[in-house]
Design a protein around this nucleic acid. Structure first.
Lengths: 225, 225
DNA sequence: CGGGTTACCTGACATTGTCAGGAATTGTGG
DNA sequence: CCACAATTCCTGACAATGTCAGGTAACCCG
């Protein structure tokens, strides 16, 4: 069973000593290299433009050899999906953990971070948030990563008083909707990006007006013509 | 030049009399039949799953024969894009033209219509609003149709006092964002659909509070636990 | 230095969008 | 009515795709 070429393992064979993971090390490095190359290609040709041949070329091997690292193209997307959400977590987490004295400023930082993350890499946004790749569905493990990462957003919302799940859904829809519109209708511009702060105050007024009332000065920041 | 097989014309040859559009009639009918079949296939296999062979089969011809009606696959997407926005116009137009005595109810009808239209056909939503098809970009004519259709939404917004372009952008982002989240994270459910009315009142409060103030009873509708 | 695992390769297959060229159908003018 | 012209649809073929099967060379351990 350990010789099954279909079993893509990137953990050392069980029962093996501390040594011998020289190969394993090299293996995970190559996997990472492939995923990095995939991101590179995807950024310039779109998600659907990712070609196994090209991917192989860009890491110096034949397309078929990639299959000893990933069981299929979707498996590569899965690794990208996971990594994308790890990046997301790394982006949003610190913002969500930050000082939240000024509710509006706090949520603005999160919303801006979310928006920037989305528009910074359209292909990534499409993979993580749009579920638009032909037959791709994340594996359970990758999905768990996604849930965890989005949980950080959620907990950020909670800290500003958005505890109602429906309110949180509304907030994510607003912020993700801005990014989506930006990418679809004005890529490279800021037609929707400049609305983020306004959207924040809109959402806060809707879902947590009581908290805003205690900081009446906070919602005035966008009134510079 | 009139014998150029690459020229896909669905207008009668210039200089021809009133008769002789028998062929032309048949031609546009077949084109429509092809587009209809394409929608059917796309609805069950996704946008990227549309195959020329399958499409040909489903209208009773070979894939290559489709090329005498459409110059390429993208050309078919273009026709679908156009038709999709004509449907959108037919959906939103009447709602935008309706009586607008109760501002909130009026905008709710539009928002619900928009949302229903989006989630009714995920493939269509993707084609019209997400711009996620590999190399596709709408032709100038189809784009004009889209602009016109979206203009109806815009004019609906204007009738409830959303005249600021930025406010309109914000509103479309909110409503389209809800649909996008619904399709990506809870297809078939209504986790985001039930937030539409709430989103309407949120948007109105943000962009046209003065108008809401004159109808204070209108924004109370969602307070049923 | 053997033996087994691993890394990569070549070859092949089905499927894709699309071009080139031929046959059959159709509508029109003499 | 019939020949000409246009159109409709076909068959063949090409390059590119994702992926399977099987072979060879490199590595690591005892």
């Amino acid at each position: 069973m350990s010789g099954n070429p279909n079993a893509i393992s990137f953990e050392p064979a069980p029962g093996q000593g501390v040594l011998g993971d020289r190969r394993t090390l090299r293996r995970v490095a190559t996997r990472a290299e492939i995923v990095a190359a995939a991101w590179r290609l995807v950024r310039q040709s779109g998600l659907a433009g990712l070609s196994m041949r090209e991917l192989g070329d860009s890491v110096g091997m034949r397309a078929q050899s990639v299959y000893s690292y990933f069981s299929s193209k979707d498996d590569i997307f899965d690794a990208m999906f996971r990594q994308g959400y790890e990046e997301y977590r790394a982006t949003i987490g610190p913002l969500a953990d930050a000082q939240a004295s000024d509710i509006t400023a706090y949520l603005q930082a999160i919303a801006q971070g979310h928006f920037s993350f989305c528009v910074a890499d359209p292909a990534r946004f499409q993979l993580l948030f749009l579920r638009t790749v032909p037959g791709f569905a994340p594996s359970a493990a990758s999905y768990a990563t996604a849930v965890d990462a989005l949980g950080r957003l959620q907990s950020g919302f909670e800290r500003v008083g958005i505890t109602d799940p429906q309110a949180a859904d509304l907030a994510t829809a607003v912020f993700t909707g801005l990014a989506s519109q930006q990418l679809a209708n004005d890529p490279g511009g800021d037609r929707w990006g400049r609305l983020v702060d306004r959207a924040v105050s809109m959402v806060l007024t809707e879902v947590a007006p009581h908290l805003l009332a205690t900081h009446p000065s906070a919602s005035r920041e966008r009134s510079t013509p």
